[in-house]
């Protein structure tokens, strides 16, 4: 009897310790990046472009990377949403009459979700060669769209599925077509959740480095067209950390802090938005 209790206590302790270990990993990451990064951050970092000699430790800022990341993230999120919404609708029972096809598409999304972003980068680069593009904003957006698409589509599917069957049937019973039901009832009802899915994918997109490494390139200037190369925050962290100068490495910390803050902000915003917007949904 005592043995059984001892075993119970032992495993309970191990579980609590494991949970604490995972959580402290998270807190440690946030603490280290905040302490190192916030110290290196200055107004110049977020308002100025790099000047000559920036990578030797002279003055300048990260504006190119900040603007670049936002452009890449917004562009890719918009493209991914355009593809993800139809797919999420298709996976609803209203459309996927034959479940086998829906299951195939769903499985394909799961597989796409698992493909490493470096592979998307390589694939995106192959497409760009085929189209005759160089490293550019457009190339980066293509690669990032592929990274974001499965995340967004699966999240949207979940959200749409939660719209109650009765609500849909009510719409059909007054003579609405599937399209009208989707547009006026299902999508409207699920709007807060759809927005959360979009923000979730946006957060993943701006943080992804491997896919934009050779598709978007890196530059000290702001892009003037879709065909210009563009800098990004994750790559700013990566490249500046690789230089031998401590001043420049400090800036890598600042860039990482900005990136982390941005991602956390997006995640908090999405939670708040969900709460606010869902007041208008029919319960």
């Amino acid at each position: 009897m005592r043995l059984r209790c001892a075993e119970e206590l032992l495993f309970r302790a191990l579980m609590v310790l494991s949970t604490i270990a995972v959580l402290s990993g998270l807190l440690l990451i946030i603490a280290v990046i905040t302490v190192k990064g916030a110290g290196a951050l200055s107004l110049d970092m977020i308002t100025r472009l790099p000047t000559g000699g920036y990578y030797l430790g002279k003055e300048g800022g990260l504006l190119n990377a900040i603007v670049g990341s936002l452009l890449l993230g917004l562009g890719a999120t918009a493209c991914a949403a355009l593809l993800a919404i139809p797919v999420a609708l298709y996976l609803q029972h209203d459309y996927a009459g034959r479940r086998r096809w829906a299951n195939l598409v769903r499985m394909s999304l799961d597989l796409l979700w698992g493909i490493p972003s470096i592979v998307y980068g390589a694939f995106g680069f192959t497409i760009m060669l085929y189209l005759g593009l160089r490293a550019s904003l457009l190339g980066g957006i293509i690669a990032l769209t592929l990274v974001e698409l499965p995340i967004m589509a699966r999240a949207m599917e979940e959200v749409l599925r939660m719209v109650s069957v009765e609500l849909r049937e009510a719409s059909y019973s007054v003579g609405a077509t599937r399209w009208e039901t989707m547009r006026a009832v299902v999508v409207r009802q699920a709007l807060p959740g759809l927005l959360t899915a979009i923000l979730l994918a946006f957060g993943r997109g701006i943080g992804d480095a491997a896919s934009v490494l050779f598709t978007a390139g890196y530059t000290d200037h702001l892009p003037r067209s879709l065909l210009d190369p563009v800098a990004s925050l994750p790559l700013a962290v990566f490249f500046q950390l690789g230089t031998p100068f401590p001043e420049v490495q400090q800036r890598a910390y600042a860039a990482a802090f900005l990136l982390l803050a941005l991602v956390l902000l997006v995640s908090v915003c999405s939670r708040l938005l969900t709460r606010r917007l869902s007041r208008h949904a029919v319960k």
């Binding site: 998270l26 993943r204 480095a209 962290v237 982390l260």
Partner: peptide, 18 residues
């Protein structure tokens, strides 16, 4: 735990380096 999933990989990398 969900936040942990959203942290960009370069941030993990920098954490490792630091």
């Amino acid at each position: 735990v969900d936040v942990l999933a959203g942290i960009p990989s370069v941030v993990y990398g920098l954490f490792g380096v630091l």
